[in-house]
């Protein structure tokens, strides 16, 4: 993650019915908005990736998930919708249990992009086609996860990809002095940001909106 930017302390907000979240909002015209899903009790861990996302122009809102994530994600999407974010301008990334939730979110919602990072325990097949382009970043058993990746790719109308870091183990995304983990942490964060940049629909600036309004219908639609 890049260094040298001022650190933003995420603000605690209540979204929907009883969901406590933290949020980073940005001035100007932010690039997009990202939902960060975390393990229960690990909400404070989200501050680091949220700051990393802010460096790339993304607002973010983070919440804990355990079990069914649909309600939490629905509440967070409604919260972002109130700030003017459309579904395809929103990405979702999830760590641990949040990683499993990000995969289920990719099956339930049509968002800009989804990234699952180091889910705890076995990753179950959502048994449905994915509707959001999904990237799975895993430590551990590469063969089984690659098979899941192939299954999801074949089944889904959207693009999906699985990347494994077998040498780095399940904590690959937390930087460490160990070379394989350091390399995996760098690579996985870079892939996460690129996945979002390549797919989350950018919010248009006022000047870009005015220009687009002057274009003939159907020309250059994102």
């Amino acid at each position: 993650m890049e260094q040298g930017f001022p650190r933003i302390e995420p603000e605690v907000v209540q979204v929907g019915a009883g969901v406590t979240a933290t949020e980073i909002t940005l001035g100007g015209v932010p690039r997009g908005a990202i939902i960060v899903l975390c393990d229960a009790g690990r909400l404070s861990d989200a501050a680091e990736p949220m700051n990393g996302l802010a460096e790339h122009g993304y607002e973010s809102v983070a919440a804990e998930v355990s079990g069914g994530a649909g309600d939490v994600v629905g509440s967070l999407l409604a919260h972002l919708g109130a700030r003017g974010w459309e579904a395809e301008q929103v990405g979702v990334i999830g760590y641990g249990a949040g990683g499993r939730a990000a995969l289920l979110t990719a099956a339930e919602f049509t968002l800009g992009a989804a990234v699952t990072i180091a889910p705890d325990g076995p990753v179950s097949d959502p048994r449905e086609p994915l509707r959001t382009p999904w990237l799975g970043l895993f430590g551990g058993d590469a063969a089984g996860l690659r098979r899941l990746g192939e299954t999801l790719y074949e089944r889904s109308p959207v693009y999906t990809e699985v990347v494994c870091y077998p040498a780095a183990g399940s904590g690959f995304h937390r930087d460490s002095a160990e070379a394989p983990v350091h390399a995996a942490a760098f690579d996985s964060w870079q892939r996460t940001v690129e996945w979002l940049n390549l797919r989350v629909v950018p919010r248009l600036t006022p000047l870009a909106r005015a220009w687009r309004a002057r274009q003939p219908a159907g020309v250059g639609i994102p």
Binding site: L198, V201, L204, A208
Partner: peptide, 24 residues
């Protein structure tokens, strides 16, 4: 590759696969 948005690495202008300029 697979990308909905293609961003020029020179000045950062970005275009969609449908051809439209998305951001400058």
């Amino acid at each position: 590759g697979n990308a909905r948005f293609l961003t020029c690495f020179y000045h950062g202008w970005s275009f969609s696969t449908a051809g439209g300029l998305v951001s400058v």
